[in-house]
């Protein structure tokens, strides 16, 4: 069976992200999964067991200061070399900013078609992509080369399947153009105990209706009780209630959790763009005409300052 290369996405402290496990699960339906690790020394050793748990037959270790210390380009060069050598059936990358950027450079290097934002990919290489805020669903294929696809987090449920991966060190020869953009510092701004927004199975978001940054504690409280992440509408972000990296929507993150709770969010089309593929949608809004109710599986017309504390209290009681 031909290999399927999976680009591993991990945190800086070498925790494999959930999207990687999803990609490995998807790769197994197409061929033999090979995980590709890029990062600082020690990355592969820290992650190989987890990657094996989800079926990685092989792990390529691309560990070097040059790869880790420069933006995107070295990773694309290393991947292109690997693709030329092992002739995989497909390359799967996470549909994150960096995943897409690497895929873009890889496509240029190989003059190979690119499929972005896939939510499914069949063994014959047909990708399903949502377009225009999920209003249109598209089936597409590459017509040149192998499928190089970026896949959205939460598109499928990761399933373990034990394998014992063979680890192979990647020897990478970088060109001068690969090391033009130097990463000189990495700053952690806030890293709490909450799951990452795009990976969380529960997201609780607040909008302008939440009224202030202080009031966002209510949103956080409900999120914590449900083990979820916190999101925000653009109006809430623009009003300074919550930091920009938590914005959900057209110009923010796309999330697709099992449960999305919208508090004081009207449901503008650009907000929907980021959340309407969520499995179950719940909305609390005091305006019965708010468009968010058109897509909510369960909606409460009411004041969030009454409904949310009561719900929080009730969950605590039941725990």
């Amino acid at each position: 069976m031909a290999e399927v290369l999976v680009l591993v996405e991990a945190t800086r402290d070498f925790t494999v992200k959930k999207v990687t496990l999803e990609l490995l699960t998807l790769a197994r339906q197409i061929g033999s999964p090979s995980a590709v690790v890029f990062g600082a020394a020690g990355a592969t050793a820290a992650m190989v067991d987890k990657l094996g748990e989800y079926g990685a037959e092989k792990v390529y270790a691309g560990e070097s200061a040059d790869i880790d210390g420069h933006l995107v380009a070295p990773k694309a060069t290393a991947l292109a070399e690997l693709v030329r050598r092992v002739q995989p059936a497909a390359v799967l990358l996470p549909s994150t900013q960096e995943g897409k950027e690497i895929a873009g450079r890889l496509a240029v290097k190989l003059d190979n078609g690119l499929l972005t934002d896939a939510i499914a990919l069949t063994a014959d290489g047909t990708a399903t992509q949502p377009a225009f805020a999920g209003q249109v669903i598209v089936q597409s294929k590459v017509t040149r080369g192998i499928p190089i696809a970026t896949v959205r987090p939460n598109s499928l449920t990761p399933a373990p399947q034990a394998a014992t991966p063979a680890v192979e060190e990647l020897q990478v020869s970088l060109g001068a153009a690969d090391t033009l953009a130097k990463v000189v510092d990495r700053v952690t701004e806030q890293k709490g105990s909450r799951p990452e927004l795009t990976e969380a199975s529960v997201v609780v978001s607040g909008g302008r209706g939440v009224g202030s940054g202080d009031n966002f504690k209510l949103v956080e409280e409900l999120a914590d009780l449900l083990g979820g992440a916190v999101g925000a509408s653009r109006a809430a972000v623009d009003s300074g209630f919550y930091p920009h990296q938590f914005q959900v929507g057209q110009t923010g993150k796309t999330v697709s959790p099992q449960l999305y709770i919208a508090l004081g969010i009207s449901g503008a089309i650009q907000h929907r763009a980021g959340m309407q593929t969520s499995k179950t949608i719940v909305a609390v809004n005091k305006d019965a005409e708010a468009p968010i109710f058109e897509l909510a599986d369960y909606g409460i017309v009411g004041d969030l300052f009454k409904v949310v504390p009561q719900a929080a209290e009730e969950i605590r009681k039941r725990k």
Binding site: V284, A296, G299, I300, K306, V307, Q310, A311
Partner: peptide, 17 residues
């Protein structure tokens, strides 16, 4: 998407949720 159930808070909305 089809909108589903919608209830108006009668003082018990949080519990209903």
């Amino acid at each position: 998407r089809q909108g589903g159930q919608r209830v108006t808070d009668d003082g018990n909305g949080g519990v209903a949720l």
